[in-house]
Amino acid sequence: MTPSTRKKTAAKKPNTRAEWELRLYVAGQTPNSVAAFQNLKRICETHLEGKYRIEVVDLLENPMLAKGDQIVAVPSLVRKLPAPVKKILGNLSNEDRVLVGLDLQPVRRAGVSHAE
């Protein structure tokens, strides 16, 4: 995560209205925050190329924003769009779980069970 991506990070190919609106809540640049952002970006690039937008909210800078999306844990990823709102906690290290959490069928591994 670079300083320029702190508040709002457009996707690589910015859309005026992205199909997938994701918001990542972090508290400062901790290793978990950085990992979460990198993991998320990679997953989005793989599965949602051109259809997503990531907004990073640093609660240390905007503590009031924690209330709105009911943030308790960080990092927290909130899928704002498509509805319904979904939430994933943690540094997003397990891609399959992130995909399940986002309700995204893994494109290349369709048919593979997620049961662990």
Partner: peptide, 22 residues
């Protein structure tokens, strides 16, 4: 504070800084 387990997926490490900050 509203936490609904069924609406939350977890993967990897996290802490409760969100709560602390709030």
């Amino acid at each position: 504070v509203y936490i609904e387990r069924s609406e939350i997926e977890e993967t990897g490490e996290y802490n409760l800084d969100g709560l602390f900050i709030r």
